[in-house]
Design a protein around this nucleic acid. Structure first.
Lengths: 383, 383
DNA sequence: CTGTTAGCGCTTTCAC
DNA sequence: GTGAAAGCGCTAACAG
């Protein structure tokens, strides 16, 4: 009901006016700022090639000439036409970046790291998103291919399996680096989160704090990351001598808060309630937390809780949510470095896998379990 | 302490190998995919210009020729060299986008909207960030200028006043549209949030729900948006016949959760406690909420609370935070539309201001105040 | 040390 | 209907 917007137009000068008079453009307006090598060569009575070489201080060129050319270039604020250079060199100094979702804490961190790194080396980054839809991803990748990026960073969509569209780009000689959501069908370097280890540490931490009946709300089995976290969970239980309880593993269809709430309720009202929850994502964990608070179940103490991803959310929930930080920024940085290296001529193995270690972020929700008489032997390890 | 990462390298085939043998590149590897107009013209025994025209079905060209050319183009998967086209046409079909921070719910929404819109029209978007540092912004803008964007979308940094670097780009004939964080020194269209009205509505809503002693935790006075929200707050009070209390307006230095907590504590422990809080941002509001919950103050009921921005945070806090949605995505869309229009030759007034209406998101924290005997007359309007 | 030449791939007069 | 030719701005043999 608040859906309408309104528009105010104040009229006066037309900044964009030049576009209305294309016939004037060439001679009067734009060319002012377009001094070419030819212009400065002519003025100095030298050849274009000499001017070109002088500007990059080619050893062959006389110091005097270099000085004169540079001076004039300065005077006229000569700026080389990058379009011509791109054309000539078949290189744009642009790299492409495609992620499933831009509005997402983890991915925007990746983007941020990638852009910072690329810019430092004089590259610009073209960003696009797939919305986890294969068609959109294809469109994005093709657009980038056609607009002439030098290479591509990509985190594939849920729907992407073989990635022929990416293959095509590779055939065109563009290096590709995959990030986080990856497929092994594509023979490219990968920079991924060590989800297994992150989950392992999270669960181990719960165990060390006295929880043993640990439930896991996991993601869809087609998604590699979800599997890795699940396997990490299993391994941590195993290493602590705990037998996993099948009923305590729930598959989230949507990765959201409601799902956490729903499963927590289901399990906690059931005959065999767990005493801790490790959730695929902070959002799911906060759903669990909501249920626990509603039921006035003490967190931590009675029940322990761990999320995954370290969203802002986790920091300011109460109790503050313990979670696992995935270092999205770092992933962006590393992936970009690899891409730039290969663009600079380095040879990088097509199946180099860089695993970025996660970081346990221990806040309140995973604090030590309150010891009860009959379960004192549950204390394993120390805090 | 968890700061190290590790790296696994598996070795085998070298996808990037071509880059190691530049002398082979030209003849053996890459050219395969680079069929040019010349190639297909030669094979058909026609001239390049005819081929060019045929591909775009120029009316002059014989139908037969058109068919033959298109067929061959299809067969060879001819894809026009976009670098050459850019060069020739002095147009890249890329637009630049600079924001203070990519990892920020509002800005990433803007980015998302801008990219979606641009892509639809065949434009790619080059993204960069200023970190609210003038130097970085200059670097970003210059990089974009030099890499040949056709136009620029920008949300300026806190440190930007005159924006000469942006002016420079405009002089080079590139249209610019400002978004959200804007300066009037730059004669460009602006797409902004109606912060005044958003704040006005938020405060009005609190008043309608029975709160009259409304505090405001505001942002820095150099920031236009912060002022607008403050003015909206004042106006809403005024229109309800409430005299603003100077002590209830606090200046946040950092816009964060701690700041909200701090000021809430200060005011609520003071001699003249307010009964509601309108905060410059959801984050600040959540700080207030934390204090309220600690003190077991009922929200809503005893105290009402409104944020601004509608972050994910607001949705899942408890009580869920009422707030103001700024429609970041919509801003990105509108700004991009304007830019594309002007790129397409439309003349757009240099001071067109598009104000995007905000949206009151009413959740729990602003619910009706509990009526006490002596304040029944405080009921104004209806729910 | 410097100039000449050729050409990147495409578009666009201008002829025929 | 089609082709020839010029040129966008720059680089890089090659030849002096």
């Amino acid at each position: 009901m608040h859906g309408e917007f309104f528009l105010i137009l104040r009229k006066s000068s037309n900044y964009f006016a030049p576009y209305r008079f294309p016939h004037l453009t060439r001679t009067t307006m734009i060319d002012k700022s377009k001094v070419t090598l030819k212009d400065i060569a002519k003025e100095l009575g030298i050849s274009v090639s000499t001017a070109s070489r002088a500007l990059k201080a080619h050893p062959d060129i006389a110091k005097e000439t270099v000085r004169a050319v540079k001076e004039l270039a300065e005077k006229y604020q000569y700026v080389p036409n990058s379009l011509a250079i791109s054309f000539r060199k078949k290189k744009t100094f642009n790299i492409g970046l495609v992620v499933p979702e831009i509005v997402h804490h983890f991915f925007s961190n990746i983007i941020s790291g990638a852009i910072a790194t690329a810019n430092q080396s004089g590259y610009n980054v073209m960003v696009s998103q797939s919305n986890d839809v294969l068609q959109d991803e294809k469109a994005a990748v093709n657009a980038m291919l056609h607009s002439g990026v030098d290479g591509l960073l990509i985190s594939i969509s849920n729907e992407t399996v073989l990635g022929e569209h990416i293959q095509e780009l590779m055939h065109a000689g563009k290096p590709v680096v995959q990030m986080d959501k990856v497929t092994d069908h594509l023979k490219t370097p990968q920079v991924i989160v060590d989800d297994f280890d992150g989950a392992y540490q999270a669960v181990q931490h719960l165990i060390q704090n006295g929880y043993r009946k640990i439930a896991h709300f996991r993601g869809r089995p087609i998604v590699k990351n979800a599997n890795q976290r699940y396997f990490g969970y299993l391994q941590a239980l195993k290493d602590a001598g705990i037998t996993p309880e099948k009923d305590w593993v729930k598959h989230c269809v949507q990765i959201n808060e409601a799902e956490g709430y729903r499963f927590a309720k289901e399990l906690l009202e059931g005959p065999n309630p767990p005493d801790a929850f490790f959730c695929i994502t902070d959002l799911v964990a906060l759903g669990v937390l909501r249920y626990l608070k509603e039921q006035k179940i003490e967190v931590p103490g009675e029940v322990g809780l761990m999320g995954f991803s370290n969203w802002k959310l986790a920091e300011i929930s109460s109790p503050a949510l313990s979670t696992v930080d995935q270092h999205g920024y770092e992933i962006g940085v590393r992936a970009t470095q690899m891409l730039l290296d290969s663009l600079a001529g380095a040879s990088i193995s097509s199946d180099a896998i860089t695993e970025i270690k996660t970081n346990l972020v221990i806040r309140e929700s995973s604090g030590r379990k309150k010891v009860q008489q009959q379960t004192q032997e549950a204390l394993v390890g120390n805090n």
